[in-house]
Design a protein around this nucleic acid. Structure first.
Lengths: 350, 350
DNA sequence: GTGAAAGCGCTAACAG
DNA sequence: CTGTTAGCGCTTTCAC
């Protein structure tokens, strides 16, 4: 028996089991890990003792020996907003299935925090990292990668490098949204986004927008575009106010693309406030397909990011790498789809 | 230097630093942990070596020695739904502030899963538990508690026992919601909830409803009440369909209390489908005050659970216990408030 | 003021 | 088939 300094954690060790069962500790270890043959009788005795004393192997002692604890760390900017928590859910799903435990590192979209957490976690204790970061944190990820600890970049395309990556095709997703709106006869298509310094994910969406316009022979009109640092995922007042002020300036397109469903929600509310009917007067498209798209009025047409799948794929890839399995591709691009609901209608004749 | 079995994790150890700096390993340990006086010169040399080799102490080796890893586990049923992820956010906040790392155990509302995860985690590796469980999992929590590992029960009142608990007053919250609706002249008040076997939290809400009716001299009418296992937090189709079928049966109260905002959302949608105006014909109240209450049409009047605060308080309490601080109260009840928005109106004259 | 050495609980190599 | 033992990286006594 061992009593911790704080006289709290009282745990029974492999030694206790060996004593109880009258065998060597290596035998106990061997029955636990099935590392070599043990006669049924001794095995039996060991198992009985384990149950009797309610013994659980100390993972951390084992970890110290084998340099692995079946633990992976996930770095996320924010767990409370729908998109992140749903991807996290997908990650957790496979962690559980494949018997890993998950360490959560939250950064609040703060670069230094990201750095701090990574440094804390970067020791032999963690088997791998999923960087589902707020930024294209190349140096940090590279640092992990260079230390030969398995890491994958989720939702952020780091460009040409060997770091395993799981992303959606942000460019194509928005480009085809423009196509979609054009099919409904829209010629004036607005765009609402947050800013994207240090962030290719959202920048590529904007480029997709531009390309979509060009492809459909539509002119880019900056008056239809709102890209503001005020737009935040986990907050609503600013978003709503910002959009409202933007609308007050007067030039309103017949349809809007937004870069997140929550922005679409704020937009719809602001639009209604200003006396517009959605979608009769103005169509609105979201991005993400979070649960609440099914509760807005009108129901939101949006681009589905397969959030759960993203988490699944990223985690499976990471664990495959950790376990030394054959990897077919280090760069996985997951397709998005447009979910048609009620917030897009044909453009009014003008 | 140490190379793991998989030849991957290459880490520099305290020994390397000792060699590099030409001192004993105990000295290195002492400068890292400030455990005893070291002359400025040696200290300097050690620090230089640490920086030179980018050394980070191996937490798990330390953990093995001191029986503590500054890690706490949180058991949640589901991270993807808004309520849980927001409380989790509050937990994470203080974990970070107080320098603990968080292990996430997700149970999918599955009792056996809860048990399995707890057993895996229940070893010297984890300093404490927050049980933010799907059920009143008394035996499991008791087991942890009896092993003298700090544990707190969050959102679930375990009744008379010594286990530290952080909850809201579910009874009072709903009772005062009834009061609130009565002030608007409602005499027929419906109630929508999921079932609550093994779950006092939601049962107490129902009792609050009953008590509220009695207090206001209103009769309980089972036809106004929908309590169904079909209602789920992280899902929407069932909820919506279930409510819709319920409404089709015809007897509609003038106001509804729901046990979760998402139910209110589904209800509002179903009500609109059936040609009712919310709140003119039927008033609706939610519970939780999740972000999307600010996006529905009409904006949802609801009972605010201070989610972030619940997480903060629970985690602070746990860490205080772990660190052996003086605890003023082991049972904390956090007040709720009604957030008035637009989904409640005066009852129509009938 | 610093070093040597024991030992946390476990695995794995080596004996027998 | 099973036991003995070294050692993972660290903290902490005990010496000097």
């Amino acid at each position: 028996m061992v009593y911790s300094k704080k006289k709290r954690q009282i745990s029974v060790s492999i030694k206790d089991i060996a004593n109880e069962a009258g065998v060597a500790i290596s035998t106990v270890s061997n029955v636990i890990n099935k590392t070599r043959y043990v006669t049924p009788q001794t095995k039996e005795r060991v198992i009985e003792s384990i149950e009797k004393l309610d013994y659980r192997p100390n993972i951390i002692a084992r970890g110290l020996r084998i340099h692995s604890t079946n633990t992976v760390a996930v770095i996320v900017p924010d767990i409370s907003s729908s998109f992140f928590s749903q991807v996290l859910d997908g990650i957790e799903e496979v962690a559980r299935k494949r018997n890993y435990t998950l360490i959560l590192g939250c950064t609040s979209f703060d670069y230094n925090e990201e750095k701090r957490i990574t440094n804390i976690l970067l020791n032999s204790f963690i088997d791998g990292f999923i960087f589902f970061s707020g930024f294209d944190n190349y140096e940090l990820i590279k640092k992990i990668y260079d230390k030969n600890v398995p890491v994958i970049s989720l939702d952020k395309d780091l460009g040409d490098c060997n770091i395993p990556t799981v992303v959606i095709d942000n460019f194509a997703a928005v480009e085809s949204s423009v196509d979609y709106l054009c099919k409904f006869g829209h010629k004036k298509i607005g765009y609402i986004s947050f800013t994207y310094d240090k962030q290719t994910t959202v920048r590529k969406r904007f480029e997709g927008y531009l390309s979509g316009l060009a492809k459909n022979n539509l002119e880019y009109d900056p008056d239809f575009v709102l890209i503001s640092p005020q737009m935040r995922l986990h907050e609503t007042t600013f978003t709503y106010e910002t959009v409202k002020n933007f609308l007050k300036k007067g030039k309103i397109p017949t349809a809007f693309l937004t870069v997140a469903d929550v922005f679409a929600f704020g937009l719809i509310r602001a639009l209604k406030d200003e006396g517009f009917n959605v979608p009769k007067d103005v169509s609105v498209m979201g991005f993400d397909n979070i649960l609440f798209c099914q509760f807005t009025d009108p129901l939101l047409t949006t681009v589905k990011q397969p959030k759960n799948l993203m988490g699944n794929i990223a985690m499976n890839l990471l664990l495959d790498i950790i376990e030394g399995k054959e990897i077919s591709s280090k760069k996985i691009i997951i397709p998005t789809t447009i979910i048609e609901r009620k917030s897009v209608a044909f453009a009014k004749k003008q």
